[in-house]
């Protein structure tokens, strides 16, 4: 059984990596929970809130399932005294009221003109092209896990600050500079 022996030897000779257990969860649920968590890692200029207790507003475009999960996650939740709110958007709604904006795969980036948004909005998407078009954070699927990619160029142009903890967990890119 030469092929069997070869397989055995191959398997033994290879080195080592930690183990990861766990059950699979739907992608949109994980992304919604990540968005829910993001709020704690971002600081917005005070001027973006009417009062110290006015709500932190989420907006979700082009991702219905994520919208629904996020709605459940944030209901009744507060961050530093601010209640969390998920806006129900329609075609005509302005995105200027949002603090965290998620643009799903079904959103039309051109129409939304990511670049033209108010600089205080944290823009989150789920594709590489989202970053190329000036989005700040992309939640990408990498080997079955969600992995954040942060666009430092877009972040520099905004009035937002991200905590170093989040920056450590993410891949940082500067699509503007040609390396």
């Amino acid at each position: 059984m030469s092929w069997f022996a070869a397989g055995l030897i191959c398997t033994v000779l290879l080195a080592h990596v930690p183990v990861s257990p766990g059950r699979d969860l739907p992608e949109h649920q994980i992304k919604a929970a990540v968005l829910f968590n993001f709020a704690a890692f971002v600081s917005w200029p005070e001027s973006l809130f009417e009062t110290p207790l006015s709500p932190l507003r989420y907006c979700v475009v082009g991702a219905d399932a994520l919208h629904e999960t996020l709605n459940h996650l944030i209901s009744g939740e507060r961050l530093e005294g601010r209640p969390m709110e998920l806006l129900n958007l329609d075609e005509e709604s302005s995105l200027d009221a949002c603090h965290i904006l998620f643009l799903g795969g079904a959103a039309d980036y051109d129409k939304l003109a990511v670049m033209g948004l108010k600089p205080g909005i944290l823009t989150v998407g789920d594709s590489e092209s989202f970053i190329e078009q000036g989005g700040m954070i992309a939640l990408l699927r990498k080997r079955k896990r969600i992995h954040p990619v942060i666009n430092l160029d877009a972040l520099d142009q905004s009035r937002l600050r991200l905590s170093s903890k989040l920056l450590h967990l993410a891949t940082l890119v500067r699509p503007g500079s040609n390396e």
């Binding site: 766990g22 699979d24 994980i30 968590n37 459940h72 996650l73 896990r145 969600i146 989040l166």
Partner: peptide, 25 residues
Amino acid sequence: NLTADLSDLKGLSIQELLEVPVTSV
């Protein structure tokens, strides 16, 4: 029942969330 499922999710830190395998469709 519904909130039980999602509160599990809420209880996870961002590091833990990024380690959860997601179902690929």
